[in-house]
Design a protein around this nucleic acid. Structure first.
Lengths: 121, 121
DNA sequence: CAATCAGGTTACCATCTGGTAAGCATTCAC
DNA sequence: GTGAATGCTTACCAGATGGTAACCTGATTG
């Protein structure tokens, strides 16, 4: 019997530019990782402390995905113990541009609202 | 016995501007809704056809949330049957600015990759 | 009165997400 | 050889997400 996949049609427009690019930024910690790479390469452990609360599992998962999507570049160095540096590709740098607009708005939100607001429904 | 909430600490920095603004854009269909309101008010049913595949439930949920967050404005008109128009607030317009950068990148992705790429891990 | 339209709401449930905890491989210093 | 550091991987599972289907209210039209 064929297993019916029920939740498989959320995004009907498969080539929508908005959706296509937003997917690069989707998932917990994804924008944070890109943002923390904006000034140059970082190592795995550096990112772990840059992003307090991220688990090694998530970090690995996100870094792999971002590498596969062409957003970041993974370069292991033959030090000992071996270290791995992650840096942005040109595409990654473009995303930093988008994120900086987002960060700008975030700053202004902080000033105007100041009191936290609930974002959950 | 106190019920332990296990998944409650993803974002330790509660006032991070990046996170704060990205939350406004989070959730399925959220960027799409904001994007389709960029040229002026739309009605509930118009949005439903703008976004093929969205369910009435999701649309209601998102519109309510975006209204509560100050991104959109809901204005029911006393026509018959009554219609409801949704439009962007100044904050919503700022988000359109961010999204247009995203859309730009999406366009360039389409041109360079052309073949679809998988965004799932 | 029944049907229709606008704009929802609700119940139910499959799937996805991301957390914790543990383990693993390599290399070097003691 | 034992332990620490670096960079992962795996199993397990709670809770969040978002889909479908059905229902609702109030006004208008026939």
């Amino acid at each position: 019997m064929i297993k019916r996949r029920k939740n498989s049609v959320p995004p009907p427009p498969p080539d929508c530019p908005l959706r296509k690019c937003m997917e690069l930024l989707s998932g917990a910690w994804t924008p944070d990782i890109i943002w923390y790479l904006r000034d140059g390469e970082r190592r795995f452990n550096e990112l772990q402390t840059d992003l307090p609360g991220v688990s090694a599992k998530m970090l690995t998962t996100r870094l792999k995905r971002l590498e596969r999507l062409g957003v970041i570049l993974r370069s292991p160095k033959p030090t000992s113990p071996p270290t791995v540096w992650y840096g942005l590709t040109p595409l990654g740098l473009e995303l930093v541009g988008a994120l900086s607009v987002v960060v700008d708005i975030g700053h202004r939100l902080k000033q105007s609202h100041e009191g936290s607001f609930e974002t959950r429904l």
